[in-house]
Write a protein that binds this DNA or RNA. Structure first.
Length: 317
DNA sequence: AATCCGGGGAC
DNA sequence: GTCCCAGGATT
């Protein structure tokens, strides 16, 4: 959960996840839909799929215990250098240094490393530097201490050098380069997209969700349950109406699409304007690919945050 | 080596 | 608004 995600954002998910699936055996045996529902809203959903696959491999091949061997850990889906080092050092006191965004920033300032830290050759050197510093024991405590130093003291903006325990060794500070190091991560230019979505509602307050309706909006909805939706350009209502007929058939022919308040959503480099349309119907469309459920019970299914925002636009009006 | 994948909290 | 997060997989 912590991969590229702040601790504060993870905590409530972590608590709910462990309460529902407290053991590796429970996780391995759970329906994938339950795992994804527990992850719903946290993002990077391949992590959830990989975590469950890893649990299944651990049960099948490692007697239900996370492997102590580095190579075996790296062979698990979703376990890379960082996570393997973190788990093995914290759980088993194995002598592997972690390198994450926090550690990289601390080391880059300590040694005044210029350039993009994520560039593979530079990242590898930083990993070697981290390993060379790992003379302390227990290794897990050392690793967590360096990460926490980065999180709380050696922060990206306005680091708290006055309270830093290693400021006297810091080359970036000596050179007055703490604001220039590390170099900012280069990012892809943002792209603007408009997505129109139809939120059906029957007299009992129920709606429909689909899965895998088309390739174009997978990015936004993460291949999970979603409202019928389509990317639109000039005439959102008309383009959505056409899409609904293609998706759902003639049942969608004479719908009245009532525009609701647009919402903003960002997925990596895409700036998305969500255009919700309420479709009041006496009877919901039926199909094997359709799930019917109350509009205020979306958390029962795996959905992305975009789907939650769309539902909220109806519930708030 | 590049690119992709979510979401939100801090500033 | 901007930045970046206890990264990993895929191409």
């Amino acid at each position: 959960m912590l991969q590229q995600t702040r601790i504060a954002a993870v905590l409530p998910y972590y608590d709910r996840f462990l309460a529902a699936l407290p053991t590796v055996h429970a996780l391995a045996a759970a329906p994938q839909e339950q795992v994804l529902s527990l992850w719903s809203g946290l993002g990077y959903y391949s992590r959830a799929r990989n975590l469950q696959r890893a649990a299944q491999e651990i049960v099948a091949n490692h007697k239900g215990k996370f492997p102590r061997d580095l190579e075996a850990a790296l062979a698990l889906p979703g376990i890379g250098r960082y996570t393997a080092a973190a788990v093995l050092s914290i759980a088993y006191d194995a002598p592997f240094a972690v390198l994450d965004g926090n550690v990289a920033r601390v080391l880059a300032r300590l040694f005044a490393v210029h350039g993009d830290l994520r560039e593979p050759a530079r990242w590898r050197r930083l990993g070697e530097a981290a390993q060379n510093l790992l003379a302390q024991s227990p290794a897990g405590d050392w690793n967590q201490a360096v990460m926490e130093l980065g999180e709380t003291v050696c922060t990206p903006q306005t680091p708290r050098c006055a309270t830093c325990p290693v400021s006297q060794f810091c080359r970036a500070r000596a050179l007055r380069l703490t604001n220039e190091i590390p170099a900012p991560r280069r990012k892809r230019a943002p792209v603007k997209i408009k997505i129109a979505a139809a939120i059906f509602r029957d007299p009992r307050g129920r709606t429909i969700l689909l899965r895998d309706p088309g390739a174009h909006d997978h990015v936004l909805f993460s291949r999970m349950w979603q409202f019928p939706a389509v990317e639109v350009r000039r005439d959102p209502a008309a383009e959505l109406a056409k899409h609904l007929q293609d998706e759902l058939g003639p049942v969608a022919a004479s719908l009245i699409l009532e525009p609701l308040r647009p919402a903003k959503h960002t997925v990596t480099f895409r700036n998305i304007t969500l255009l919700p349309y309420l479709a009041r119907v006496s009877r919901l469309p039926k199909s094997v690919r359709i799930r019917v459920l109350p509009l205020d019970r979306l958390h029962q299914l795996p959905v992305s945050s975009a789907t939650r925002k769309l539902a909220a636009s109806v519930l708030s009006q």
